[in-house]
Simulated assay, not measured.
Amino acid sequence: MEQPLHVPELTAGGFSLRPWRLTDLRLVREASEDDYIPLITTVPSPYSELAAVAFIERQWGRASARTGYPFVVVSPDGRPVGNVGLWLRDLEQGRASLGYWVAESARGQGAAVAAVSAVTDWALSELGIPRLELYVEPWNTGSVRTAERAGFQREGLLRGWQQVGADRRDMFMYALLNGER
């Protein structure tokens, strides 16, 4: 049996990243009340403590199953404010994808750029992944800025690429190749 992935602790721009803990229930609650986060993630909505614990256990399971590295983003004052994940589904083809969200109360403070940059640097240098990808809805200007500030380049529009809620949605594809940073 293969060993689970070790989710390391990373830092960037005053923010830190660490594995999920059961003490992160308040973050799951805030994310569950967001209009968008539960549509694009497995964050439970409506919130219940039982569902929130199951969400956190699913994050642990991703590392155990070797499908990815889920991180909690922690602000400089020690408050959990978001999530970033490095997903390895296509690693055999030389690529991995990142997904991220920040709770509404912490948006506009640089958490997403710091988190994506930290995971990107680590994935490229420590894991040696050849290509990293991000998928962003065209209307999501905050996420577009995050991708671009983290060094990703827009490669194109993928029409009807992803199921979001009840609808198929277009996504911009962003990528960063190892050696471009």
Rank of each mutant, 00 (worst) to 15 (best):
M1C: 06
M1I: 12
E2K: 09
L5Y: 07
L5D: 04
V7S: 01
E9M: 07
L10P: 09
L10E: 07
T11D: 05
G14S: 08
F15Q: 03
F15H: 15
R18M: 08
P19G: 13
D24V: 12
L25H: 08
V28L: 05
V28C: 05
V28R: 03
R29Y: 10
R29F: 12
E30Y: 05
A31I: 05
A31C: 14
A31Y: 05
A31R: 03
E33K: 01
D35I: 00
I37S: 00
L39E: 11
L39P: 02
T41K: 02
T41G: 05
T41N: 00
V43F: 01
S45M: 04
P46S: 02
P46H: 00
P46T: 04
S48F: 06
E49M: 03
A52L: 07
V53Y: 03
F55E: 02
E57R: 15
W60S: 02
G61Q: 13
G61M: 04
R62E: 11
A63P: 05
A65W: 02
R66H: 04
T67Q: 11
G68Y: 05
Y69E: 04
Y69K: 09
F71V: 06
F71H: 13
F71E: 00
F71I: 06
V72H: 03
P76S: 04
G78E: 12
G78H: 06
R79Q: 15
R79F: 04
N83S: 15
N83C: 13
N83I: 00
G85N: 14
W87E: 11
R89M: 09
R89F: 11
R89Q: 14
D90W: 14
G94I: 15
A96K: 10
V102Y: 03
A103Q: 08
S105E: 12
S105N: 06
A106D: 02
R107W: 01
A111Q: 09
A112K: 03
T120E: 00
W122C: 06
G128I: 10
G128F: 14
I129E: 06
L132T: 07
L132V: 06
L134H: 00
V136N: 08
V136D: 05
P138R: 00
T141P: 00
G142I: 08
G142Y: 13
R145Q: 13
R145G: 10
R145F: 01
G151N: 11
G151T: 13
L157Y: 02
R159T: 13
G160L: 10
Q163L: 15
G165M: 11
G165C: 06
G165N: 08
A166I: 07
R168K: 09
R169Y: 04
F172W: 15
N178S: 14
G179W: 11
E180R: 10
R181A: 12
